Every structure is written in structure tokens, then in C-alpha cells.
Amino acid sequence: MRRLPSLYISHGSPMTALQPGLVGQRLAELAADLPRPRAIVMASAHWLSTQPLVGAHPLPPTIHDFGGFPEALYRLQYPAPGAPELAAQVQQLLLDAGLPARLDPSRGLDHGAWVPLRFLFPDASIPVVPLSLQPQLGPAHQLALGRALAPLREQGVLLVGSGSITHNLHDFRRYQDGKEAPYVRPFIGWVEQRLADDDVDALLDYRAQAPGAVQAHPSDEHLQPLHFAIGAAGEGGLGARRIDAGIDAGMLAMDLYRFDGAGGLLSPR
């Protein structure tokens, strides 16, 4: 079985499920360029906890964790199966790395998981194991989560962090009619360059080093899935590749990244 990359996905608004735009196209293209995984572990910015939790539901329900959207959005389902045995393996790998993980047999898939998965794998046939993040423990903790699970990439498991390269909802209505928040492109460029340079230390310290970091991310939870995906790339070079999926509402950068790690890009399935 061929080694899979790890991914970082900017999932955008829940409305992406109904209005996919460029990011839906890019996700479909990305899926076509990957070997088909046997399972997915998904670390979403919308499942946060004080310690690592691993979803072990055999059929994770679709969670509509938002309000005030069109009724059609609440009718959407993503009925992917779960993978309790893989969840137990994920828990053990985290425990072996000194990360006190617990299984959660009731957790479903929040919109940070099921919205992008609708475009990556629309048939919903690949088992999905959700994983919680602990942003209060900092980026290095998320990196450690990814590193602990990196061996799963050799077993046909796709490791995905889902967040947003920029995420400042205070500016949601401020930049319209083609205007962009001034911090977005400098932040995008800084992240892309640091990833190209394999500069993990700078990325861990992004709030002090990146231009406009606090404006781009008033809180950490939507960027830290990137640190998970970086960790999941394993030791050595990241093999980072940016996929530009545009900027939504002038302030949500929709970048996607794949990390093939040391050894470079893989060929399609």
C-alpha cells in the first residue's frame, strides 16, 4: 500500500456545502490526484477539547453545528461509516506518544469535516475517524498529535487538518464587493514561504513572526490544524504544495496544502 500525503484544508463557511465555488473544484481535483485512502482521520477546528478525543462511532452522524442558514443546508447529510478499530489504533498511537487520548463513541462529523469531505469523496464510502484538537496547549501540541499519527500514512490512512489559513469573523461584513482585508495576502505569502523552507520553528511561532498574525487569527483554533498536518508529514522535509482556492468574503483565505513529506510527490492512484 502506497504512502499517502497529509492534508490541510481551509473549509470556509458552512455555505460552501451549497455554494462550493473554487474550493469545491480544487478539492475534487485534489482527490483525483491522490491514491484512494482506506480511511480518513480528520482533525477539525470545530471539535475542541481539553485532551485528545478520538471519535469511535460506527456511523458518525452529520452535525449541523451552526445557525441562521438556509433550510437546505440542514438537510444535507454525509453518511460515511466510522472505523472503531482504527479509532482504537489512533488512541494507542497517541498514548504511546505520551498524549492522554480517550475514545468518544458518540461524536459525529462537524461542518469542518463533512463540508470539505463532500467534495473530496462525494460518495461518502470511506470511513472517517474524527479527532479533537486542544488549541489552549499551543501549536507544538498539535504538531505532536500529527507526528504520533504519521505512521498511519503508510497504511493507507489520509490524515487531514481542517481549518482556515485566515479566519477573522469580526471582519466578515467589512470586506465586500471585491475588497480584501489588507492582512490576508501578506499572511498567505508568509505561510507559503515558511512551508517551502521547511521552517517548522517559525510556523510554531507564527503569532510573533508572521505579518498580521493576530488580525488573521484572533484565536488559534483555525490555524492549528495546519500544525497537525505538518506533524503528520513526518520527520524530514515537508514536501509542501500550496493549492490556491481563492479568498472568500475578502477575509477567509481558502488555501489547501498537501504534504508528501520526505520523498516528494506521489503519483495518482
Rank of each mutant, 00 (worst) to 15 (best):
L59T: 10
G237S: 14
D255V: 00
G234M: 06
L152T: 06
G236N: 12
Y74R: 04
M1N: 11
G161D: 00
L266N: 09
G82Q: 11
P225W: 02
G112C: 01
P116R: 03
D177C: 14
P105Q: 09
H64M: 11
R102V: 08
L93R: 14
P61G: 09
A249M: 15
S219L: 11
G138V: 08
G161V: 01
Y206F: 10
Q92W: 01
G156E: 03
A233V: 02
P35Q: 12
G236C: 10
P100I: 00
H46D: 07
A140F: 08
Q193G: 08
A28E: 15
D65P: 12
A229S: 13
E235I: 06
Q136H: 11
P139H: 05
Q215Y: 15
L95I: 11
L94S: 10
P151C: 11
A72D: 15
T16L: 12
A148I: 01
L30P: 04
V160C: 05
R118K: 13
W47Y: 07
L204H: 09
F228V: 02
R194P: 00
E85D: 14
D104M: 02
A216K: 07
G264S: 10
A43D: 00
D205W: 06
L109G: 09
R153S: 10
A39Q: 00
Q176G: 14
L223P: 01
V23D: 05
L22C: 11
L204I: 04
A87G: 12
R242P: 08
L158T: 03
E154P: 00
L34K: 02
V128S: 08
F187E: 09
A196N: 06
A249P: 09
Q176S: 15
G246A: 10
R241T: 10
V54N: 06
Q51P: 02
P20E: 06
F66H: 12
G12H: 01
L103Y: 09
A202S: 15
Y206H: 05
P139G: 14
A32N: 09
R107W: 13
L95N: 12
P35N: 08
L18I: 13
G236H: 08
